[in-house]
Nucleic acid binder design. Sequence first.
DNA 1: GCAAGGTC
Length: 611
Amino acid sequence: MRVLNVAEKNDAAKNIALCANRGPPNRREGLSQYNKIYEFQYQINGHQCTMIMTSVSGHLLTQDFSPQYRQWQSCPIVELFDAPLQTICPPNYQNIKRTLEREARTCQQLIIWTDCDREGENIGYEVIEVCRAANPRLGPQHVWRARFSEITPQAVNNALRNLVPPDERISNAVACRSELDLRIGAAFTRLMTMRFREIAQYKPFLNEKGLLSYGSCQFPTLGFVVERYKEISRFIREDFWKIKVTHEFKKPEKARVEFHWQRVRLFDQLCCEVIFDICKERPEATVTGLTEKPKSKWRPLPMDTIELEKLASRMLKINAKETMRIAEKLYSQGLISYPRTETNIFPKDFGLPNLVQQQIASPVWGAFAQNLLQLGPNPRAGKKSDQAHPPIHPLKFAPNLAGNEKRVYELIVRHFLATCSGDAKGFETILTIQITEEFFQADGLVITERNYLDVYPYDKWEAKTIPHCSVGLKFIPTRIEMAAGQTSPPALLSESDLIALMEKHGIGTDATHAEHIETIQTRQYAGMNDDRRFTPGRIGMGLVDGYDAIDRAMSRPHLRSQLEASLKDICEGRRNKADVLQEQIDNYRGIFLQAQAQIQKLRDALDRYTQ
DNA sequence: GCAAGGTC
């Protein structure tokens, strides 16, 4: 019996075949240069099978409006909410499709090995659709879903012993999301672009094509940037006052120590002055406590995509989009593992020692790796798993990289070695003194074991000496002073902040955060200042304000969150696709008609910011 | 020409 197996990408197909075959399988070319065909023998339920393993490259099919609706002037825009859609295989995927069709004709069974997430289930149905059209004998009893939580020999064999039918509900949830994104995106994008592109006053602030787009992810992303900007504009600074005590200890050891007030600060100047005067009058300080307790600084969790993007942005000042471009290149050169992963826990028996061993060759961190190998790699375990890909880790030592590729690779290696190492350990000392009725304290830190910090310069943990003086010791502080200050607004969003907000509100996926952030910049809705923080542009401010005046929901994250909840209902059988689709379309058509009728509100807002 | 989701 011949069995066609299809994974979501070539890398997965290769590894699954390797695991199932317990060794390298035969490899031959398909029509697509990136998607190879792997062949091996395997027994399923006592049947000897010739396994044909190949892959797609993500979604094989996409949806678009029927041709008569694709011209922007072809119909009243509101019709896009109901216009018929077509399923298309884009030209650059035709080779993959033809390979599937050709192989499907010779097979009696089909096993779907796409990633075990929502999109994967939908991609699985695209594969089924194409294969079944080529070979109608691949009926429901001949099509199976392999469920796996990682690509290891055990998980792969287990999946083959426990094949299940594919889950159409999960696929339907994705089809629902995808249709809504298209209809809503196209409708609002055409409306805004056609109404505003030609207005001279806006032109200096628009992108080259004059495209004003709306999308269910790009707009909430812009919303976060605008919201933070406005929060800062609204912020009213408040004056406060505080008392600072400094002492230059001569014994038991020499040290300059700053004590901070236990009241932290007061917003009443007079009140602070009164207390300050009392302290100055009777400045003698008495040590009332010295506590010392162990403190550790945790080594980082295994790296997932979001962490890579955030770290590279913060520590290397390389933006998320560029980081992913580089990571994909390193991956295609076989230097690092698959860079799009939501997993931050290494599977058991992952072969970490071998991966650490690779790094011993480095003149920079080789010694650290050598030492780590002797102690045994002991990674911290996170709680997230996408059930397909392990955390990002180096595969080989790569001495010949340069520029940002070298820096990103180094970050990945150092992070990997750090996560496999031990927490930093030390002691925290808290010294408390009393001056009249007021208490002040100073914190000290002694680092006893640096451990992971030795290989991970991105974390700072600074030792601070506090003299070991005994309780009851009295001294006159070198200085007691009153200082004035002002509360300060939060900072503009950094890229790392923005990614964190997107993740928290379920805007986009780990693979798309960087793209949405890039989109709001290429649309000139937002820009990045010299501190690498996001500032809204004039059009961005105007659009958010304008939509706020029509329907607050448009630039806020909760519409997307609500859709996510409905999609979950579809997956779990509580609702069906048609029902959710109708509800969402009706809702957005309503907002669209409002926006069209009240387009002047959008114009007014844009006018305000572009004068 | 438009979205967001996959991936080379």
